[in-house]
Structure formats: C-alpha cells, structure tokens
C-alpha cells in the first residue's frame, strides 16, 4: 500500500493515527486563528448557523401543535432523536466535514500542496478551512437533547444510561465515515458534492423522525445498506422501550460500535482507492 510505507520504517497503525490527529489539530488550530482575525463575521455566522439548524426542530414543534404523536412517538421522543442525530452529524461535520470540498481542492491544486507535506493527506483535508462556527449545530442539538432527557419518562437502567454516550460516539463515527466515503466519489466525479449531502444531511433529517413513519424497505435499507439506523434509531428503541418495526433481534440495538467500525473501515478503503486513482497507482 503506497501510503503506509514511510521512511521511518514500519510505523505502527497507532502511531500513524496519533500523527493524523496531531496534524489535524495543528492545521485546525491555524484555521481557527485565521478565522478569528475576522471576529465580527465569525460571531454573525455562528449565530446564523444556530438559527438555520434550529429551524428544523422548530418545524417539528409546529407539527406537534397539530398532533400529540407522530408515528406513535411523542415530542420529547422526537427531541431525543433530533438531539442525538444532530450532535452526531454536527460533530462529524466539525471534524471531517471539510472533505465535502474535495473536488474544489483538486481543481485549485490544494490537494497537491497537501501531498507534498509530510502529514497524512486525509487529516489535512479534514482540517482545511476548519471553522468553529460549525459548533452551532452540535450545540443546538445538545440543547434539544438536554430538554428531551428531562421531559422523557424513561426507566434509566444502567445499559440505557451507557447507551447514550456510546450512540453519540458511534453516531459521530458513522457520519464521519459517510462524509469521507462519499467525498471520495469526487476523485472520479468532481462535481458530485451533493451526493454526499443526501447521505449526511439527508441521513440526519431521516433520523429526526421515528422509524415507524417510513416504509419498511427504507428502514431495512438504512439497517443493512447505509447503516444510518445504528446512529440513533436502533439504540433509541432500547432506551425509549419502543418495539422495532422490523422485528430485528435485540442484539441490533447494541450493535452500533460494530456498525461504526465497519463504516470507518470501508471509508478508509474508499479513501485509499480514491487517492490511488488520483495519483495514478492502481488500475
């Protein structure tokens, strides 16, 4: 594999991962300071960002002006779905969302500049144009989640308590993998940025609503195909004690870490394949 061999000899996977995180941290720090030289603009954009993301939930609240239940679920339950899905998407967007501009980076030659630095190109791409204003979404989603947790009537057993942070972490990994995986399409199809939106922003919108309102085929599609259901639907069934519309074994409700690992692995393979195609190694 072209990129794993380094001059320092056999670098372990762990060292490589740590170096990636450090490179990301350094670059993101630079971008943050650069953005902060336009402070007023930053505050305005952060505010606008929170307003835009709040709109989605406001619409859900308006819907509940006309009904008590949607697909049999209550407003606090939708708040739980909204909050968890929003945090996962928002954190993924914060960390790796910049990959969506891969096509533009290739056209501008920025990717080449990344390839001549001694740091993993993916880490640099993820940090490119990093902005803390992307915190708007996770912060707003966290507020909704906090409200829903107080309004929910849940018997908090230890496994339910534990599932919440686990699903947030796994959800972030799954959305990150979707960002990266679908961004790699742009190695071949430079303008296909919006495809990624369908699965990231579209996926998060899907997860705002309970699985009961969708066709069973669609629900099955996001369990066995693009595994969005593991972000919050499946664990939420356990936490909120709701029946599974597909009648899957209960193990699925705890399986988010497995799905997240699988997603990360596939995204990694796709990225490598894409970079190989770009540099002209494979094929």
């Amino acid at each position: 594999m072209a990129d794993t061999v380094t001059g320092a000899g056999a670098e372990t996977l762990l060292e490589r991962a740590r170096w990636s995180v450090r490179a990301w941290w350094l670059m993101a720090g630079m971008w943050t300071r650069a953005v902060m030289s336009y402070r007023a603009s930053f505050v305005l954009m952060l505010g606008a960002n929170i307003m835009i993301t709040s709109l989605d939930f406001f619409v859900v609240v308006l819907m509940f002006q006309h009904t008590d239940r949607l697909g049999g679920w209550t407003l606090p339950e939708l708040g739980f779905l909204y909050g968890t899905s929003g945090i996962a998407l928002g954190m993924a967007n914060l960390f790796v969302g910049s990959t969506d501009a891969l096509g533009a980076r290739i056209r501008a030659g920025t990717l080449d500049t990344m390839l001549i630095r001694p740091a993993p190109a993916l880490a640099q791409l993820c940090a490119e144009r990093f902005s803390l204003r992307r915190l708007g979404r996770p912060v707003q989603a966290a507020a909704v989640l906090a409200w829903s947790l107080t309004a929910l009537d849940v018997a908090w057993t230890w496994d339910r308590v534990l599932l919440v942070p686990v699903l947030l972490l796994c959800g972030t990994v799954i959305f990150s993998a979707l960002f990266i995986g679908f961004a790699t399409l742009q190695f071949w199809w430079g303008e296909a940025k919006e495809i990624q939106n369908s699965f990231t922003y579209g996926g998060a919108t899907l997860l705002h609503y309970p699985p009961t309102i969708f066709a069973k085929e669609l629900v099955a599609g996001v369990v066995f195909g693009i595994p969005l259901a593991f972000v919050n639907w499946l664990p939420a069934l356990r936490i909120l004690d709701r029946p599974d519309p597909l009648g899957l074994p209960a193990a699925f409700q705890y399986a988010s870490p497995v799905a997240a690992a699988l997603c990360a692995y596939v995204a990694g393979l796709l990225w490598r394949a894409g970079l190989r195609a770009y540099r002209g190694t494979g094929s």
Binding site: H66, T67, D68, R69, Y209, F214, L218
Partner: peptide, 14 residues
C-alpha cells in the same frame, strides 16, 4: 422521500 413520509405521518394523525 424523507419529508413526504413525515407529512404522511402528520396527515395520518390529522
């Protein structure tokens, strides 16, 4: 698709 299902659910309720 996603939004159509959400409307279906709302209009099923009302």
């Amino acid at each position: 698709f996603i939004l159509a299902y959400s409307f279906l659910a709302l209009w099923q309720a009302r």
